[in-house]
């Protein structure tokens, strides 16, 4: 457990919780990133602006981090380009089929006490653990 970083984990988690709560409190929207992205790619109604503003905010958050961290962000991608593409396809398709991802189900849905989100979160964590087990230990 030498990679354990409890302080930054808690601080980051608190910010995520505040961001999701602020979004609901002020705009009545769910801060579920896969849903926000899909709604911007394939608009069903004239509500693309709020999605782009939130996504622009997310990039700004990354930029603020870069500014305070000497312009560097730790991104170690260990998968091959082909695996990265397969993973992206699975994440894109799976989050739409399952109506959400880590943010929409894991942070917002569970906070609404949604049975669907609780179940989905359990399934995608279990599935992720099994996938890493197969790719790393089998």
């Amino acid at each position: 457990m030498e990679n354990f970083t409890p302080v930054s984990a808690v601080l980051g988690g608190l910010l995520i919780g505040v961001a999701a709560s602020l979004t609901l409190w002020t705009t009545g929207r769910i801060a579920g990133i896969s849903g926000i992205v899909a709604g911007a790619l394939f608009p069903k109604r004239a509500d693309v602006a709020w999605r782009l503003l939130f996504l622009g905010g997310m990039l700004t958050g990354g930029l603020v981090y870069l500014l305070f961290n000497q312009g560097s962000m730790d991104i170690q991608i260990q998968s091959s380009p082909l695996t990265t593409i397969v993973a992206g396809l699975l994440v894109g398709f799976g989050t739409r089929l399952g109506s959400g991802c880590t943010s929409g189900h894991g942070i917002c849905g569970i906070a609404r006490f949604s049975k669907r989100s609780f179940l989905a979160t359990s399934v995608f964590i279990l599935s992720g653990v099994l996938t890493v087990f197969v790719t790393s230990h089998v």
Binding site: G88, L89, F93, G94, T95, G98, V123, S127, T131
Partner: peptide, 10 residues
Amino acid sequence: GAMLFGMGWG
């Protein structure tokens, strides 16, 4: 969907 997403995530 959650299962496929988890696979891609992993």
